[in-house]
């Protein structure tokens, strides 16, 4: 694009009236929307919590949970937020090597979390917790499964952003693209903190 008439308000790159780039603004809106999605799923889980006991319909959460294992996977996911912050900081400094390093590490930590979840699902299933079995099974698998899907999509996304850093396509590897992927990643992380507290830790309180 020629820029020899930059003094005129033509429709080249209108400055965002709201001060936030379009992509970032739209993404914040998506996160608001996704909050309602997880809010509904969590509300569903909580409204059915403990109902199986009334129906004598096991297995119950404490028969299955291993808070040690889930704490490790939670720690893993929290650390991925740290590496994500480092990736955003690296691309802000223009350091491509570190950007790739931290993006890759974030995706790896995310994949490890998904692996933990796969292990947990398999383990619970073999212990007798079926999607169709009782309300705990239905609500637990759907809530944590949706979160796991979000993490998986996040890993794919991070790998795509990582792939674009190797392309010749200038303008793809922008600070904004990494930052927006980071927004998503932190959001998924925060949702997990809520799920970990409400679904797992709350079972250990009186």
């Amino acid at each position: 694009m020629s820029s020899d008439h930059s003094n005129v308000s033509v429709h080249e790159h209108p400055p965002p009236s709201f001060g936030v780039p379009n992509l970032k603004l739209a993404f914040w809106l998506f996160l608001a929307s996704d909050c309602m999605l997880f809010g509904s799923l969590i509300a569903t889980y909580l409204s059915y919590r403990g109902k199986d006991q009334l129906f004598g319909n096991g297995p119950y959460p404490l028969d299955l949970f291993s808070v040690e294992v889930t704490t490790i996977s939670t720690f893993d996911l929290l650390m991925s937020s740290v590496t994500m912050v480092l990736a955003v900081a690296a691309i802000q400094r223009g350091n491509m090597f570190q950007t790739r390093l931290w993006l890759g590490l974030t995706a790896l930590l995310g994949a490890i979390f998904v692996g933990f979840q796969g292990y947990e699902f398999t383990h619970f299933y073999l212990e007798g917790l079926k999607l169709q079995g009782n309300l705990f099974g239905s609500t637990f698998y759907v809530l944590t499964g949706f979160h796991g899907t979000h993490v998986t999509l996040g890993v794919v996304w991070l790998l795509l952003v990582l792939a674009t850093t190797f392309t010749k396509h200038k303008g793809m590897v922008t600070h904004l693209n990494v930052e927006v992927a980071g927004l998503y990643w932190h959001f998924v992380d925060i949702v997990w903190i809520v799920i970990f507290t409400l679904v797992y830790l709350m079972e250990y309180t009186v």
């Binding site: 109902k51 129906f55 169709q132 009782n134 099974g137 239905s138 759907v142």
Partner: peptide, 16 residues
């Protein structure tokens, strides 16, 4: 998939 979200017999609540 045969889940029980709205199945009263399994404790599910149609009001949900």
């Amino acid at each position: 998939f045969g889940t029980n979200f709205y199945v009263p017999e399994a404790g599910g609540d149609p009001l949900l």
